[in-house]
């Protein structure tokens, strides 16, 4: 097969895996069918198994990555649509964004003191709790590598939806905004879709927290990098 044909197959494969997995997850809600867990695993598995060269894989799939920028622009819509909720609970949302950002950076700083990681990984770990389009922008300020950051973000999303229930029970976090904001601040898009399972308000506030945390991190990263990293 020629290289171009193989590149097209790679794009088709990525699209197929994503939409097939999404379809399955909507029918059977089990965590290991969640697209954020299964799709990267399957696609990486296939690329590794058939020893497909990465430049060939990226030739057309990088068109998908280019859609991250318009997706970021699209975040204006939920902010506009849910302005009433923002005006009703500004203190709650603001404190959630601040707490999430602070704890995200503080936990990174603390954990890598006890659990050794090579610098490029440790630096890519700092912005893991925010949504990917923001994380890959902010990570370079901390000396992180965008690709490693994307993996950390995905892992954090998967872990977040797995541990949220026991943690909410343990800490008796029962309010709608408590759960929504915590999920949005700690597990970005994955957390927001998990929050939607608790209720509409939880899902909306999780998405809003995710967007505000992302924007704040991108704007603040050069400043935060003086203290962390």
């Amino acid at each position: 097969m020629s290289a171009t044909a193989l590149s097209i197959v790679c794009l088709a494969l990525t699209l197929f895996c994503y939409y097939a997995c999404k379809y399955l997850y909507l029918r059977h809600r089990v965590w290991w069918l969640a697209p954020i867990f299964l799709v990267p695993l399957v696609v990486i598995g296939i690329v590794a198994l058939f020893k497909i060269d990465l430049p060939i894989y990226f030739q057309y799939t990088h068109l998908l990555v280019m859609l991250l920028a318009p997706a970021t622009v699209a975040f204006a819509l939920p902010i506009y649509r849910e302005r009433a909720l923002i005006q009703k609970y500004p203190i709650t949302i603001f404190s959630g964004v601040v707490a999430g950002l602070f704890l995200g950076m503080f936990s990174s700083w603390l954990l890598i003191k006890f659990i050794p990681l090579p610098t490029e990984l440790a630096h890519s770990f700092i912005v893991r709790s925010i949504s990917t389009p923001f994380a890959v922008e902010a990570t370079t300020s901390f000396g992180g590598i965008p690709e490693l950051t994307a993996v950390m973000v995905v892992m954090t999303g998967v872990v977040g939806i797995l541990i949220c229930e026991p943690i909410f029970k343990l800490a008796r976090i029962r309010t709608s905004l408590g759960r929504g904001v915590a999920l949005g601040a700690s597990a970005h898009g994955a957390g927001a879709s998990k929050a939607t399972e608790y209720g509409r308000e939880e899902g909306v506030v999780a998405s809003l927290t995710m967007i505000f945390a992302g924007v704040s991190m991108v704007l603040g990263a050069p400043f935060f990098a003086i203290f962390v990293g």
Binding site: Y89, I91, T92, S95, G96, A99, G100, L103, G104, F106, S107, S108, L111, I112, I115, P116, L117, L121, F125, R128, S129, M152, M155, T156, V159, G160, I163, C164, I167, F168, L170, A171, R172, I173, R174, T175, L177, G178, R179, V181, A182, L183, A185, S186, A187
Partner: peptide, 27 residues
């Protein structure tokens, strides 16, 4: 090490943020 750091890090952020926001929301 990566898995340990991600699990511990997420637990800290989720627990801390949830605890703080839950109280502030009630207020």
């Amino acid at each position: 090490n990566i898995i340990a750091v991600v699990i511990l890090g997420s637990s800290m952020v989720l627990l801390g943020t949830g605890f703080v926001v839950d109280r502030i929301f009630r207020f």
